[in-house]
């Protein structure tokens, strides 16, 4: 019994050790080394890179990343939960409805982001339509602002929310709803008191799957935000490429990871059954 269980986990252990822990250990080591003359890292060991994060400039960047990712996650929940509910309760063609959620996401993320550039730009679909109907005379600045970035994040990560929520909703016994109705609950009360609480594990998994990539995203803010804001993802990317300051980039990554790790621990403490 015990032997079989460890065999179930063995391949995952191998992949996680070789593909995650050892490489991350290398980056952790980078974060306390000295920047090389033309990129790369050198000795001696120093805490200089990590100390730079006490700077209000970088703290502000971190805060803004959290706010944007938080808004994107809330919007994904608002948009995604009813969608998951609709798919789970569809009387027929459930797989088709589910496929229609996933389908847009088989296209490249970059193409999807660019599709929004087409929609939101001055001569894009929205502005052209609004001008044609006479609602506005000058194109509205829809592209290259935080709203466009959030739209891109929601669009990019919505299925990450819908899929796990759907998985839990689909498992719920319809008899539970009938029972609630028999006991006099309205459909809305049943939704809030029965369906929603039972879907909580899926909602938490989904929120996490949306929040985390939103936090580290940098292509969205470049393409839809017009590179006018720096998020923590941009900072790390920039240090590893253009800035060529690997220790500082590694330090930024380490800071970001430790902040998120703390959030995770807090969540697990409050609600130990919710995750994995």
């Amino acid at each position: 019994m015990k032997r079989l269980r460890s065999l179930f986990l063995a391949p995952a252990w191998l992949v996680i050790a070789l593909g995650f822990w050892i490489p991350m250990g290398i980056v952790a080591a980078y974060s306390v080394l000295t920047r090389g003359m033309y990129g790369g890292v050198e000795l001696p060991i120093t805490a200089e890179s990590l100390a730079r994060f006490a700077d209000p400039l970088y703290l502000g960047i971190l805060a803004k990343s959290f706010v944007l990712a938080g808004i994107a996650t809330v919007l994904c929940a608002v948009l995604g939960f009813p969608l998951a509910l609709f798919v789970a309760r569809a009387s027929s063609r459930k797989n088709l409805w589910l496929s229609l959620v996933i389908l847009p996401f088989w296209t490249s993320f970059l193409i999807r982001t660019y599709a929004w550039v087409f929609l939101l730009r001055d001569t894009g679909l929205f502005n052209t339509m609004l001008i044609a109907t006479g609602a506005i005379s000058e194109p509205m600045p829809l592209l290259y602002n935080d709203g466009a970035v959030i739209t891109g994040l929601v669009y990019g990560y919505l299925p990450f929310f819908v899929l796990p929520v759907y998985a839990t909703l689909e498992r719920q016994d319809p008899l539970l709803r009938d029972a609630a109705a028999d006991l006099g609950a309205s459909p809305w009360a049943t939704l809030l008191r029965v369906t929603l609480p039972l879907a909580a594990p899926g909602i938490r998994a989904g929120a996490l799957l949306v929040f985390v990539p939103s936090l580290g995203a940098y292509i969205t803010s470049d393409l839809l935000g017009g590179s006018k804001t720096v998020l923590i993802g941009n900072l790390v990317q920039n240090q590893f490429t253009a800035g060529r300051d690997w220790p500082f980039g590694a330090a930024a990554g380490m800071v970001l990871m430790s902040v998120v790790a703390v959030l995770l621990v807090l969540l697990l403490r409050r609600d130990p059954e919710s995750l994995l």
Binding site: L9, A12, W13, I16, L18, G19, F20, W21, I22, P23, M24, I26, V27, Y30, L208, L209, V212, P213, L215, G216, Y218, I232, G233, V236, Q237, F240, W246, G249, A250, G253, L256, M257, V260, A261, L264, L275, L276
Partner: peptide
């Protein structure tokens, strides 16, 4: 430990993991 590792892998910024893998 496995759960923690997996969650940590989920919260790792791609760019950091990418460079880490490259170095590895």
């Amino acid at each position: 430990v496995m759960a923690g590792s997996l969650y940590l892998s989920l919260v790792t910024p791609e760019i950091v993991w990418g460079v880490a893998l490259l170095a590895f």
